[in-house]
Simulated assay, not measured.
Amino acid sequence: MLTNIKAVVFDMDGVLIDSESICDEIWVRLADEMNLPDIEDAIRENRGCNTDLMAVQLKARYGKDFNCPKFFEDFSVYFHEVEFTKGIPLLPHVRETLEYLKGKGYKLALSTSTRRVTATRQLKAVDIYDFFDVWTFGDEIKNSKPAPDIYLKAAKELGIAPEFCVGVEDSPNGIKSCHAAGYVPVMIPDRIEPTEEIKKLCYKIGKPVSILKEIL
């Protein structure tokens, strides 16, 4: 059990809402339309990154002339088709875990690479936005995960030192970000299982998110 923790900071996609499976299907669809090879590698490489870093990595993989604006625009259209028709559901045990942590007196924050307008809409759609005391978004920081910026920003806005915060992530980039910021990293694997390197950075690995009850 962790006894000195004051806050829990969550990633969103793949930790709170079941959006990663939708994203992966759209990446594959775009790969077919744009004739992009090795799309599974590209998906893994960009998991947890904001669009600025994705653009850099996509150009590095597919060439400097890769049409990032078209890729992102088409992705947005396809994603919104799913979001506004079927919705994006909560992952298992999310609400009960947030209720448990609030009941124990922990401060809660969100640190997502998703843009503010999109993440806010999606959190409100599943009625968990108001659980959080602080929200940090991918379009409000300079350096995307795996850089520590977004988690350092969350800790600063919470007024709590990073070493007293648990960071909850599903991706290697997210875990690296948490660890670099000085958090206690907890991984809830969604689409990617941790490598030996990532395992060494984690305090706890497991799922669903209710494993937090075991340590807090």
Rank of each mutant, 00 (worst) to 15 (best):
N4V: 06
I5W: 06
I5P: 02
K6C: 07
D11F: 07
D11V: 10
D11N: 06
V15F: 03
L16A: 10
L16K: 04
I17T: 13
S19K: 10
S19R: 11
I22F: 03
I22W: 04
I22H: 04
D24L: 13
D24K: 15
D24G: 11
R29G: 04
A31I: 03
E33T: 00
M34R: 14
L36M: 14
D38E: 12
I39V: 15
I39K: 11
E40M: 09
E40C: 05
D41R: 14
A42Y: 02
I43S: 08
R44H: 13
E45M: 15
G48F: 07
G48W: 01
C49S: 14
D52V: 08
L53I: 08
V56F: 09
V56G: 06
L58M: 14
L58D: 05
L58V: 09
L58H: 01
K59D: 00
A60G: 11
Y62N: 01
Y62K: 00
K64W: 06
D65H: 08
F75I: 07
F75Y: 04
Y78A: 14
Y78M: 09
E81H: 12
E83V: 13
T85W: 09
P89G: 00
P89S: 02
P92N: 06
T97Q: 13
L101Q: 12
K102F: 10
K104Q: 11
Y106N: 09
Y106T: 07
Y106I: 10
L108V: 10
L108P: 05
T114W: 05
A119F: 12
T120A: 02
T120W: 08
T120H: 12
L123C: 13
Y129G: 02
D130E: 15
D130P: 06
F137E: 05
D139C: 06
E140S: 04
I141T: 10
I141A: 12
K145Q: 02
K145S: 03
D149M: 11
I150C: 09
L152Y: 10
K153G: 07
E157L: 15
E157A: 09
F164Y: 13
D170K: 03
D170S: 08
N173Y: 09
N173P: 12
K176N: 05
K176G: 05
K176Q: 14
K176D: 01
K176F: 05
A180F: 00
P185M: 12
V186K: 00
M187K: 03
P189I: 01
D190W: 12
P194I: 11
E196V: 13
I198D: 01
I198P: 00
K199R: 15
C202D: 00
Y203G: 05
K204I: 10
I205T: 01
G206W: 00
K207P: 01
S210H: 02
I211Q: 03
I211H: 06
L212G: 09
K213P: 06
K213T: 03
I215Y: 13
I215F: 02
